[in-house]
Design a protein around this nucleic acid. Structure first.
Length: 490
RNA sequence: GGUCCUGUAGCCGAGUGGUUAGGCACCGGUCUGCAAAACCGUCUACAGCGGUUCGAAUCCGCUCGGGACCUCCA
């Protein structure tokens, strides 16, 4: 099949034909989590967005190296604990080693992402393991004349950069505007210019995470890790750089500055940014304190949740919106997603049971084309899902004998659902597969047989009792023309 | 204040200058001992006001509302 994949490039604000720099190899770098807190719904968005992109690129046959970093050092705080490293702060409070805290939350992040069926990246480098590489880039920037020292810290000279390069091209900022609107920050007096950002920060005495360097004992600046690790694992220019829209400025803008100066060109060809998840119309985030952790979704323990939502429900909910739109969380929306997803997965399970006919009344090839067209258009998962529901209607109609498919078409349909539902969208049935446990299967089949006998005797009280009792232990019976079917409920 | 995004039916959410998005909910029907599921059908839309156009929900302008970024944040 001939594909023309178009991706929206934040750099140009346009959808562009995707052409890897070194076809068929694709390098993708995505900004990963800062591991100092439990993963929340906001983390699920980029996790799932770039998982979809990763999976689709692999499906199309590209050899993808997907790098997603772990930030376990280096982000500065700007509240009461000025200049203090977040990991270090948490460590002091908890009386733990900083790396112990990072490991704890990294494990929890992995656990949540695994539940969401987010594939692990090819490489997951940690900032703390790449201090040397970051220092080398600082030195390069200093050597090139764009870094200056001030009281043991090194800053990037934006004004000088803007003479030769275009500062703000990714985020659409204009330097003069920025200078007029930048707020008062700690350490401002050390900078030549309020827009300058730190490349190396001298550690204050109580700062725990610190490394020796030619300039001072300290730690690398906020934006350096991605430049260092992207370069190390994907080369000086790679295909895709991704992350949340909130990272666009100043983080990604600064990465472009660093790469231009240190390597002579920009880091990435395509910049892809996912939008935010909102709750009651407001961004869900750590700093706003309105976030719900993923574990709270999974067990329904957060007060604003009316029930627990399975990881696959969360995944489907996120995929039902386009990645560049905000998506507003609500119980109603999640419940709708839950039902819709079950319908989709139930239909998929029916495909092998369909009976073929000599003629097809439905056009499966057209469905196939529509599915690829949807994802080729900037990974439009909501459109793809809408078309999959057309497939659901076809499957159910064929099962009811109201439509027919040839054996060939059934096979194609099966293959399409496997590719799109399972492999690309990454949706999978969460119920214990009915029939996988031989003993359970036998016991329930016996009950179904007993109920069938009761039904033949028109003993409705007994047959309903069996159905109700089974429902109480989460076994759902459905009567069909071929007899009763059973499945495990939620 | 600056930069940018956005406003679609009860809810969530696509999309497009002229033709059904889709899901959930609701209502009617078919099927069923009853359920459930499924299928068929119906019903609620494009914030407001102007403009461009043969034609705009889709393009432009203004007004009103919501949001993001400008500070660590996915």
């Amino acid at each position: 099949m001939n594909h023309q994949l178009f991706v929206y490039n934040t750099l140009t604000r346009k959808k562009e034909l995707f052409e890897p720099i070194n076809n068929p190899f694709v390098g993708m770098y995505v900004c990963g989590p800062t591991v100092y807190g439990d993963p929340h719904l906001g983390h699920a968005r980029p996790g799932i967005t770039f998982d979809l992109i990763f999976r689709y690129l692999v499906h199309l046959g590209y050899k993808v190296r997907y790098v997603r970093n772990i930030t376990d050092v280096g982000h500065l705080e700007n509240d009461a604990d000025e200049g203090e490293d977040k990991i270090a702060k948490k460590a002091r409070i908890d009386q733990l080693e900083p790396m112990e805290v990072a490991q704890y939350y990294l494990d929890r992040y992995h656990f949540a992402m695994d539940k969401l069926n987010v594939r692990r990246p090819s490489i997951e480098p940690r900032a703390s393991g790449h201090i040397i590489e970051q220092m080398e880039i600082v030195q390069k920037i200093i050597d090139a004349g764009y870094g200056y020292e001030s009281n043991g810290s090194i800053y990037f000279d934006i004004a000088k950069y803007n003479e030769k390069f275009q500062y703000g091209k990714l985020s659409g900022r204009v330097l003069d505007d920025l200078l007029a609107t930048t707020r008062e920050l700690d350490g401002q007096e050390e900078k030549h210019n309020s827009a300058d950002f730190a490349l190396w920060k001298k550690a204050s005495p109580e700062h725990i995470m610190r490394w020796n360097s030619p300039w001072s004992i300290g730690f690398p600046g906020w934006h350096l890790e991605c430049t260092a690790m992207g370069n190390k694992y994907l080369g000086e220019t790679f295909d895709i750089h991704g992350g949340g829209m909130d990272l666009l400025f100043p983080h990604h803008e600064s990465e472009i500055c660093q790469s231009n100066v240190a390597f002579g060109h920009e880091p990435a060809k395509y910049w892809i940014h996912n939008n935010m998840i909102t709750i009651n119309g407001q961004k869900m985030g750590k700093s706003l304190g309105n976030f719900i952790t993923l574990n709270e979704f999974f067990d329904g323990s957060h007060p604003s949740l009316t029930q627990a939502y399975s990881p696959m429900t969360i995944r489907f909910f996120i995929l039902q919106a386009h990645y560049r739109s905000t998506v507003d969380f609500s119980n109603e929306a999640l419940q709708a997603a839950e039902k819709g997803m079950k319908k989709l997965l139930m239909a998929q399970n029916l495909i092998p049971k369909l009976k073929s006919s000599a003629q097809s009344t439905e056009n499966i090839k057209e469905l196939q084309q529509k599915l690829y067209d949807a994802l080729d258009d900037d990974f439009n998962s909501p459109i793809a899902i809408a078309h999959l529901f057309d497939g659901v209607r076809i499957i159910n109609s064929v099962k009811d004998g109201k439509a027919s498919l040839t054996e060939e078409d059934i096979e194609l349909l099966k293959q399409l659902f496997e590719s799109f539902v399972s492999d690309i969208l990454g949706l999978k049935s969460e119920e214990a597969a009915s029939g996988s446990d031989e003993m359970l299967n036998g016991v329930i089949q016996m009950l179904i047989d007993l109920r069938q006998q009761a039904k033949m005797d028109k003993d409705w009280a007994k047959s309903d009792k069996i159905r109700d009792e089974l429902k109480n232990i989460n076994v759902i019976l459905k009567d069909t023309k071929e007899g009763a079917e059973w499945s495990i409920g939620e």
